[in-house]
Simulated assay, not measured.
Amino acid sequence: MFFSIIIPLYNRPQEIDELLTTLTRQTYTQFEVLVIEDGSVNDAKAIVDKYANSLDVKYFFKPNEGQGFSRNYGFERAKGDFFVIFDSDCLIPEDYLEIVKDYLFEHKLDAYGGPDAAHQSFTPVQKAISYAMTSPFTTGGIRGNKKHIGQFHPRSFNMGVSREVWEKVGGFILTRLGEDIEYSIRIHEHGFKIGLIPAARVFHKRRTSFSQFYKQLHFFGRARINIYKHFPSELKLVHFFPAAFTCAVIFTVLINIFYWPLAFICNFVMLIYFMLIFFHSWQVNKSLKVAFLSIIAAFIQLTAYGLGFMQDFIKRVVFKQQ
């Protein structure tokens, strides 16, 4: 099996340098790499060129269109049997392709997704963000879990599709705002087999600060409504949890100001919830600092997603705005 690894890139030369370094260590070497520079001002051509002798790597520069259409640009030029998509802020374990190749031969998947985790080199903030996005105490726990809710939808930070899928389904029709979920739904509808490869994990940096993390999760909340507009049945009860949590936070603040006798109950419930996050993160990360930061990360994840979700739900569902 020959893999084509496709990486959209926008103004992140340092990230692609680190990612390509990890790809030079792959134990399975039947692959090419296509770096698609999506109209960056700070391009990474010189960095990519450094790997010409250690990787089968190709660099392309195109006008800015967003990550979905940049992946399509890579699909059109790839020669592999299977197309593997990574975000530029990922580090790839050296046995990743070996694991994927063996799993695909055994289970005959047409498309797959894999989980993400925090690398030991990540900062405490990055580890806390990674925890929030994968924890069973936040909605992140459904992203790379064997017991996912409903159909499994691979996420584009760690996703693969066969050449046959590309030829019959096509590529992304959205360039952002839930483009990976929309794509995987169409793959399902064409009768292809999609599955999670639990051991095919990547180390996903995500965002390096809480302010960047807030912007990203607010965007994710809006993206869920975008998916709903295309596929109404894909809006599940669990997707309302961040919005419900956000409303509960607002209610708790108001009740503390205007009716403090009831505030004790609300404050106690919030305290128990965040203590569960703290101790679970402490157990997972073996760090008190990361455990404390995980409370902040989880709070940001839920409220940012919830506000983005409610914003577009009101605009696009209640008031029917485009």
Rank of each mutant, 00 (worst) to 15 (best):
92 I>S: 06
18 E>S: 13
164 E>Q: 10
295 I>M: 13
248 A>N: 11
262 L>H: 08
273 Y>E: 05
187 I>E: 00
318 V>Q: 04
116 D>N: 12
97 L>M: 07
182 E>T: 03
167 E>W: 03
285 N>G: 10
298 A>E: 00
65 E>Y: 07
102 D>W: 01
194 I>L: 07
299 F>I: 09
279 F>Q: 03
43 D>F: 03
96 Y>A: 09
217 L>Y: 03
207 R>H: 13
90 C>R: 03
118 A>H: 04
155 R>H: 14
24 T>K: 07
205 K>Q: 11
237 L>E: 10
167 E>Q: 13
189 E>S: 03
273 Y>K: 11
261 P>E: 13
310 M>R: 06
140 G>H: 04
173 I>W: 00
76 E>I: 02
245 F>R: 07
246 T>N: 09
167 E>G: 03
187 I>A: 02
88 S>Y: 01
83 F>R: 01
157 F>I: 14
37 E>S: 13
284 V>S: 05
30 Q>I: 12
38 D>E: 11
260 W>Y: 15
149 I>D: 11
55 L>C: 08
217 L>E: 12
13 P>T: 06
172 F>S: 02
100 V>M: 07
168 K>I: 04
180 D>V: 04
247 C>N: 09
189 E>F: 01
154 P>N: 08
125 V>P: 03
43 D>I: 06
75 F>R: 03
122 F>N: 04
36 I>K: 07
214 Y>T: 02
36 I>T: 07
271 L>E: 07
296 I>C: 12
79 K>V: 15
32 E>A: 05
138 T>K: 08
320 K>E: 12
33 V>Y: 00
131 Y>T: 09
210 F>P: 02
182 E>G: 01
129 I>N: 05
32 E>G: 10
1 M>F: 10
264 F>S: 14
221 G>P: 03
186 R>A: 00
188 H>S: 00
149 I>T: 12
103 Y>G: 02
320 K>T: 07
245 F>E: 09
303 T>W: 08
30 Q>R: 15
223 A>D: 06
186 R>L: 02
213 F>T: 07
143 R>C: 04
137 F>A: 01
76 E>Y: 02
279 F>E: 02
272 I>A: 11
43 D>R: 11
128 A>S: 14
235 L>P: 04
288 L>E: 10
14 Q>V: 06
202 V>Y: 08
140 G>N: 04
222 R>V: 14
74 G>N: 11
281 S>L: 05
226 N>P: 00
71 R>C: 02
322 Q>N: 13
276 L>V: 14
176 R>P: 02
164 E>R: 06
76 E>G: 04
68 G>N: 05
263 A>W: 11
245 F>M: 11
285 N>S: 13
58 K>A: 09
158 N>S: 15
122 F>G: 04
191 G>S: 04
291 A>Y: 02
234 E>H: 02
200 A>H: 05
268 F>E: 11
74 G>S: 15
179 E>W: 00
26 Q>E: 10
46 A>N: 11
32 E>N: 08
45 K>A: 09
281 S>P: 06
237 L>T: 13
234 E>F: 00
